[in-house]
Amino acid sequence: MTTISLRRARVRYGPLEALHGITVAAHGPGLTVLLGRNGSGRTTALRALAGAVRLSAGAVVWDGADVTAVPAHERARRGLCLVPERQAVFGSLTVRENLELAAPSYDVALDAYPRLGGLLARRAGTLSGGEQRMLALSRALLARARVVLVDEPAQGMSPAVAARTYELLSGLDACVIVAEQRLPPVLRGRAALVHELRRGAVVFSGEAGEYELRTAAGPTGSSSSA
């Protein structure tokens, strides 16, 4: 089993603090969702786990080891893959070239997203938003990472492709953490861990089913402590 967590993590952007000492944990194989509106800190939390932003306090712990000081490229070498919301593909390269950077054989990617098969010669920068997400996620599938971090994986996708994407992510032999504004319909009733963030603080941690009950109960519903 793989585990990764932020422990009492704080992140500052100049005078502004984006994360206020949050603790969130994820384990795999399995799916964890960081929920929150824009400005909640969910993207910053992903980037902190990946080493793309530095903590001003707290720690990143991966499989029991403190990796706070380990740079992003070394975390990637150890098996961590980050798929950001923007600039997740090499726009000047073709779809084929993007896939070949991840693995010499990319049949798995074309099985996951057959539409990419007809786009292999296209420059990635000319693809639609949804097609670029398919390509970025295909590269993550090919990476065979131990930890996969994805910011808004289904952005720009049709409901059917979005559902397929979550099936693929759920089936990975990895610790998968996704950041979303709201709980994806395909995860309702499924075994997934949820952390909800608001203004840089964790306001709920628990199973997806608990989160649904809390949301249905409205503002008076109870929440779990992180």
Rank of each mutant, 00 (worst) to 15 (best):
M1G: 10
R10V: 12
V11F: 11
Y13P: 03
E17N: 12
V24A: 08
H27I: 00
T32Y: 03
T32L: 03
N38R: 03
T43Q: 03
T44E: 09
R47M: 14
A50C: 04
A59T: 12
G64E: 07
T68W: 06
P71E: 04
H73L: 12
E74I: 11
R77P: 01
V83M: 00
P84F: 09
P84E: 09
R86Q: 13
A88C: 13
V89N: 01
G91R: 07
S92T: 14
T94R: 11
V95S: 08
E97S: 08
E97Q: 14
A103M: 07
P104D: 06
Y106R: 04
D107Q: 15
R115D: 13
G118R: 01
L120G: 00
A121W: 14
A121K: 14
R122T: 00
A124P: 02
G125S: 05
E152S: 04
G156V: 10
M157H: 02
P159I: 12
V161F: 06
A163F: 02
Y166P: 00
Y166M: 06
S170C: 14
A179N: 05
Q181M: 12
Q181V: 07
L187V: 04
A191Y: 01
L193Q: 13
L197F: 09
R198Y: 13
A201I: 00
A201P: 00
A201T: 15
G206I: 08
A208C: 12
E210A: 15
E210Q: 15
E212W: 02
A216K: 14
G218S: 01
